[in-house]
Design a protein around this nucleic acid. Structure first.
Lengths: 338, 338
DNA sequence: GCCTTTGGTTACAACGATGTAGAGTTAATC
DNA sequence: GATTAACTCTACATCGTTGTAACCAAAGGC
């Protein structure tokens, strides 16, 4: 049915291997021969059979990307970035969702998909430090996100630094009573903990006291939980003039509640989020946030993984992406956009 | 490096083909032989090499799913459903985003990914009817969504019927002045047009007049555009007691504005959305909506595609999924949840 | 008791590409 | 002008599976 190299070879009057050489850009081919082969390829509409090449080369040309949920905006956009980065490097991405459940995260490490991919980009949310040794897999892997350490390549965002910068951004705007939304009490290594650390660091640097009443917990980082947390803060009568939300969904929920309660943003309270998801560009007022360097994270992660796949055995690396404060309406200095 | 059937065969003292037979569940094997092979497989930790099988069988075991954007919640959840449906049937999904751009939708039909997949589930948003003939591809394909017709398998939701039912649901609740949000003026075949048709049908059946002032346009179906459209309706001073939003994002944006303006939902205005995205379960008040049968759409689409891949040549089919009204707080009958 | 059927297994040739080794040419070196 | 090096191309084996055909043994039919 399909056209094979054999057909092309016959038509061009050369051996199969020569066709292969042309297709693969082998340099020592007479221009005349190359042209004949190329013509035959064009005339027959030949397309390389990737499966056969992969079998022969012992690779699949695909990498896996295991992440919590596509319906979480940050991960949908991360997937987008990874797919683009992979495409630019000639590999294909196979997506897998773990639902942020410990069990399914462990399964992803050993799923049938692993036979189809040359390596894995893994973004765990639920795995605990005790499970570090489960990450000692026998295939190339690069971790994304803040969880887990151990001797594995790891690409992460500058959670502490970026949270600190976001909080300082509010300080510079004149905020003195800055709340934070999204804390996970007791957490030792997740983003919530790291971003809380950054928040505290900024307060300390600015000479502001740390007030536990200004810390609002939120288990899941959704709009709804952000709204609930903000409601609790307001209901408790806590004085505040700034909010650092640990992600944009929380921030959007908080914005909603502030608006409802008649609190003017940014005049009365300035708000900054984290992640720079697409929705932050459509809110009212426009949400200030932190761009954690998603593109860079995706590109770097794919690069590291491809190096491992190519056989690199250098010591495990840890890359921290550059972040950037995205100043929008929700924390304009001394103004009210309404 | 990796364990092959050859290794297993040697260890079990049988031929490679016998191992293959065991792995593939061929029935005529002596129990004793089967056990020996199975033991060898377990002891060696053998896993089938899918690439080799695919090469031999002339298939890749993968299907493509081309959709507009993962960051649009409906599509993220559709992708999720399709991936599950595919997994249940033993195939793997390769995702591709088209950005809802005509050019990229056309490219998807001819992308290098097509060599890697046995067939394509295609959900176009931007292609126009004139391009119907571009959909006459030489590989198995099933269309998703309402766009395009022509002789191709097609799985779609009951847009008109479901929009009609949603509107009638508001009528039953006592609404007499029902607005709709999300219209695309001039559209002839998209969801906006179909859902508007359903809305009008319901009004007619209920003996209610159609009032163009109650129709709010919204180009992109985002929260922000829903909020803007709702704002325009309220600012225009249009009397209304119900809102049928053409999708949940629009509805959530509308809810937000209503809340802000001090309009009680559902007491003063009842609201219903469309899609039953996850966020609808977390809004305040909880959003009533239409479950368009996403799971069924995904399952059916994968089934149809696999039939085509298996060689079926029956006439192109058109399947319309069952929908279901999901009644939540935002349109409770004669009550106010606040 | 010979002939056919069914069961259980195997050898061998594919699937469509690429790596290796080497055969012929032509060009460069001394 | 003989020796070596660089080009250009081909034959063949190979990647890990599965389909085909065929074998031998045991079972059933008449």
């Amino acid at each position: 049915m399909a056209v094979t190299m054999h057909d092309v070879a016959q038509r061009a009057g050369v051996s199969i291997k020569t066709v292969s050489n042309v297709v693969n850009g082998y340099p020592h081919i007479r221009p005349e021969t190359r042209r004949r082969v190329q013509d035959a390829i064009d005339e027959l509409g030949y397309r390389l059979n990737t499966t056969a090449r992969n079998l022969r080369q012992g690779r699949t040309g695909m990498i896996g990307l295991a992440l919590p949920e596509l319906s979480l905006p940050y991960f949908a956009e991360l997937a987008d970035s990874v797919m683009r980065a992979a495409e630019a490097r000639g590999v294909v991405v196979l997506l897998e969702q773990t639902g942020a459940q410990r069990e399914r995260e462990l399964q992803a490490l050993d799923s049938p998909h692993r036979r189809l991919t040359d390596g894995l980009l893994f973004s765990p949310l639920a795995l605990e430090p005790e499970e570090t040794e489960r990450l000692q897999v026998d295939y190339p892997m690069v971790l994304l996100g803040e969880r887990m350490f151990g001797p594995v390549d790891h690409v992460t965002m500058a959670n502490v630094e970026a949270a600190r910068a976001a909080t300082l951004h509010l300080v510079e705007r004149g905020c003195r009573r800055i709340a934070t939304v999204g804390a996970h009490p007791g957490e030792t290594m997740g983003s919530a903990r790291l971003r809380l650390d950054g928040y505290r660091k900024a307060l300390a640097e600015a000479g502001l006291p740390f007030d536990p009443d200004l810390v609002a917990d939120a288990g899941l980082w959704h709009r709804s939980t952000g709204a609930e947390a903000m409601t609790r803060l307001l209901d408790a009568g806590v004085q505040l003039d700034g909010v650092f939300a640990m992600n944009d969904a929380l921030a959007l929920g908080a914005l909603h509640v502030l608006h409802t309660r008649g609190v003017a943003v940014p005049r009365d309270v300035a708000v900054i989020g984290f992640d720079d998801i697409d929705d932050a560009r459509y809110s009212e007022p426009l949400l200030s946030t932190v761009d954690p360097g998603r593109e860079q994270i995706a590109g770097t992660a794919v690069d590291l993984l491809l190096e491992r796949i190519a056989g690199s055995t250098v010591a495990p690396r840890r890359v921290v992406a550059d972040f950037r404060i995205v100043a929008r309406e929700s924390c304009l200095l001394g103004q009210d956009v309404h």
